[in-house]
């Protein structure tokens, strides 16, 4: 599907290696190639699914895109601009455009802060002109958007269920009006009945706000439902990249076939 405009995200030969050290002097004895020479593109307004088992490097890709881990090599272009090796201060403007929703809704919210503080912290940084009243109004609006009530904002994370917390995580990500969201297994820690609600919420928000998603999952069934294009990862490399339909109807790589076999059938 060739595009006339630049893709929102272009990743070329991305490498993320972690050193293995040993001994008293922390000598470097080797490295883990968590992400090894990976390339893909994401078009504006689409959802790309990234599938692979635990340890395949999919979460590391997501974190490298929003600079929670530093890439070892390769290039990441956002809207045509190379953002691979920007310093933290140079990358800050991109923290407004690129956001992440974490896997674990229980540990990704600071237990000492109220929901208002959690969400408005990002507003304080990226919209410094906003006053307290405006921030409260904005948080109330965001909570409404993800299906929560404005009066929830003065409560603490532990007062919510897993699904509600993930909604808070989504509201938190949306607060800065991002264009691109890395969804790092956003439903795998939730009950099956709640999973569908969250996936539907993400799809509704995409339609409403024109968002672009990288949807990371270990479960092909969830990805099939939401993705336009699917990447299959194994041991740090992308082994198959195709449209969702093609992957399901005609998987090429033996690893993809095994993943497909693992999806429970009714």
């Amino acid at each position: 599907m060739p595009s006339t405009t630049t893709p929102l995200l272009q990743v070329e030969n991305l490498k993320v290696h972690f050193p293995i050290t040993a001994g008293l002097l922390q000598r470097r004895v080797g490295e883990v190639k968590a992400v090894d020479d990976v390339s893909f593109t994401i078009e504006r307004g689409t959802t790309v699914g990234l599938v692979g088992e635990s340890g395949s490097g999919k979460t590391t890709i997501g974190r490298a895109l929003i600079r929670l881990v530093n890439p070892t090599g390769g290039t990441i272009r956002y809207n045509g601009k190379d953002i691979t090796f920007l310093r933290e201060s140079q990358f800050r403007p991109y923290r407004k455009k690129i956001q992440i929703i974490f896997q674990d809704p229980y540990n990704s919210l600071n237990p000492r802060l109220t929901i208002f503080k959690i969400i408005s912290e990002a507003l304080e940084i990226h919209f410094p002109a906003m006053g307290l009243e405006q921030r409260r109004a904005r948080v109330a609006e965001l909570l409404g958007k993800v299906g929560l009530k404005p009066e929830h904002m003065d409560r603490y994370p532990h007062e919510f269920s897993g699904g509600q917390r993930q909604r808070i995580g989504i509201a938190r990500a949306l607060a800065v009006e991002p264009e691109f969201i890395v969804c790092d297994e956003p439903v795998s820690a939730l009950d099956v009945s709640v999973q569908a609600q969250i996936v539907n919420l993400l799809q509704d928000l995409q339609e409403e706000l024109g968002l672009t998603y990288l949807f990371i999952a270990h479960d092909l069934a969830v990805v099939e439902h939401i993705s336009d294009f699917v990447l299959v990862m194994n041991q740090g490399k992308i082994v198959e990249a195709a449209t969702a339909d093609a992957i399901y109807q005609n998987p090429q790589d033996p690893y993809t076939k095994r993943l497909l076999d693992a999806v429970p059938k009714i």
Partner: peptide, 21 residues
């Protein structure tokens, strides 16, 4: 912890993360 990563993703400066979170 994950919420410190959340704070980094928000773009919270390092010293504020250390104290507030």
């Amino acid at each position: 912890s994950d919420y410190v990563m959340t704070a980094r993703a928000k773009g919270v400066p390092g010293n504020v993360i250390m104290f507030r979170h």
